[in-house]
Design a protein around this nucleic acid. Structure first.
Length: 155
DNA sequence: GCCAACGTTGGC
DNA sequence: GCCAACGTTGGC
């Protein structure tokens, strides 16, 4: 059982979009970064939990919780010429990109903002708080996970 | 294999 | 809109 933090721009796909999907489930597609691809393909398992982080918005922060409802499988949007995520190097025979399916668990009443996360020494080692971190999915430790849940409850 | 140029991310 | 950071590309 692992914990994750997954970033998305709410203008593109936010937690409300996930909430409105059938079964509140969606494929986390379009990841085109090798480090993140490796996590999707090899390390994220059904039953893992993830924070849904809203980026490039005001305010950036954690909006709620999802579970990984399907482990890594081939990202078929790479095969679709009309998709913004099309990549001719990826083929059904030799796929390059992967995705997981996520299901909404809960929306926080108030997001736990980036500013709030920075206030806590316990969270200082989080990848999301490190300068220059650009990975859209990062692992979260059990300690960090539980601490943030308390912050969400207090909000 | 090096590295400069370029594109993207994402907070501010 | 700005800009720092960093991944990727491609010439050599």
């Amino acid at each position: 059982m692992h914990y994750w933090l997954m970033k998305s721009e709410p203008a593109v796909f936010g937690i409300d979009d996930l909430a409105s999907r059938p079964r509140q489930t969606a494929s986390w597609d379009g990841i085109r970064n090798y480090q993140v691809r490796n996590m999707l393909r090899d390390q994220m398992h059904k039953g893992d939990l993830a924070f849904f982080y809203h980026s490039s918005c005001a305010p950036p922060g954690i909006a709620g919780i999802m579970k990984i409802s399907r482990a890594g499988h081939v990202d078929t949007t790479a095969f679709e010429p009309k998709s913004p995520h099309f990549d001719a190097r990826s083929t059904p025979g030799q796929p390059l990109w992967y995705m997981v399916d996520v299901t909404l668990v809960k929306r926080f009443g108030q997001p736990v903002t980036l500013t709030e996360l920075r206030r806590h020494a316990t969270l200082r080692e989080m990848f999301i708080l490190r300068r220059g971190n650009r990975l859209s999915i990062t692992p979260v430790t059990t300690k960090q996970w539980q601490y943030i849940l308390k912050l969400a409850d207090d909000a």
